[in-house]
Simulated scan of single mutants.
Amino acid sequence: MSDPADDLGRLLVPQPQTGLQTRSAQVDGVTDRGVNLRIGDELLLDIPCSEGYRNRAAGDWVAVTKSVRPVVVWRLGDDPGEATEDEVREIAADTASDLQVVRAVTWGTGAPSGTGWQAGTTVHARKNSAGKVELYVQLSAVTDTSPDVPPGRAPSPVTVTPNSSGSWRNGRPDDYANTPMQGDWTGGGNRRGGWFYGAKIASACAGKNVSSMTVAFTRTRGSGVNAKRPMHLYLHDYQSEPSGQLAVGDGPEELLQLSVGARGSATLPASWRTALASGTARGLAIYASGRTDYAGFTGGQITIRFSP
């Protein structure tokens, strides 16, 4: 029989913690080494993640271990199953559109067995604009209505990578910056950066209906403060790097804010999409003044999606 006083004493004395101890934190940005975490006013850089934390994104609330070397172990929030199912269905539909599908092909010297067959007098074939084979059977008499023509699917997305990139300062290429930069950290003059695609963007869009363009960037480490800074994005009309000043066009648009090492993507405005697709603009640039938004960025891959 237990002693009530002993039982109360055991409850009041702190017990050693066992098992995995975690605390919650919010993802400030996704990097190539893990994630940047925001805990209160503190920004923790490049925290590694377990394999269980997938589809990482800025803004996620996650559980991170309480240890000398913290690790993100899982995402907090709703069950992602429904969103995952939608993604799988989209991938499956896109994959199926690349296949030629006929349920069965048989032949013989006599008429086919079973009901519903119609005698064809001529078979017509063609390849459509998407490279898919279409068959049309010309009948001597119609005994059953023809199925509807399946709706056309949009061409598969295309990702265009820059041919080159660089940084400019004081009206000439900047020999001291190996990635596109914006702003001025040391007082030597404001930097501007650019990504150059030749004619690849317009060529990828020729003859197609462009529905969106999404661009991806990564903020370089060692450029400015660690906290998030906006990209000041512009258009330019160069196919390759100019020998003099890089002149910028429409802008600025602040589509992304990234902490150091973080990567992100943003959808370009409709007017920019039209200009790039038509070739009246050729690429993207960044420019800022002073120290506040001084930063460097890499990437520049543009993913183009189409409508039927």
Rank of each mutant, 00 (worst) to 15 (best):
G188E: 15
W185H: 11
D184L: 02
I201H: 10
A277K: 05
R192C: 05
G244M: 08
T186P: 01
G279T: 01
G224V: 04
L276V: 03
V210K: 02
A270R: 14
A204W: 02
R192N: 07
A270W: 11
S265K: 13
R169P: 00
S265V: 11
M231L: 14
L235V: 11
G283D: 09
S203Q: 12
E253R: 13
R273H: 12
N226D: 14
G224A: 08
N178K: 10
G251E: 04
G264S: 03
R221F: 10
I201M: 06
L235G: 03
Q239K: 08
R172L: 11
S265L: 13
D174A: 09
G171C: 07
A281R: 13
T274G: 15
L246T: 00
E241G: 00
P180E: 07
G187L: 02
Q257C: 08
P269Q: 11
L233W: 07
A206D: 12
F196C: 12
A266Q: 10
R229P: 00
T280V: 09
G183A: 09
L255G: 05
V260K: 07
D174T: 06
A270H: 09
Y234Q: 04
H236M: 08
E241D: 02
Y197C: 11
V225L: 13
A277E: 09
Y238P: 00
F196R: 09
D175E: 15
G187T: 02
W185F: 12
Y238F: 01
M181C: 10
K200S: 15
G188F: 13
S223D: 12
S203R: 08
F217S: 01
S265Y: 11
Q239D: 12
C205H: 04
G222A: 08
Q239P: 06
P252N: 07
G283A: 03
R172N: 12
S271P: 03
R229M: 07
P230C: 05
S278R: 08
D174G: 05
P173C: 01
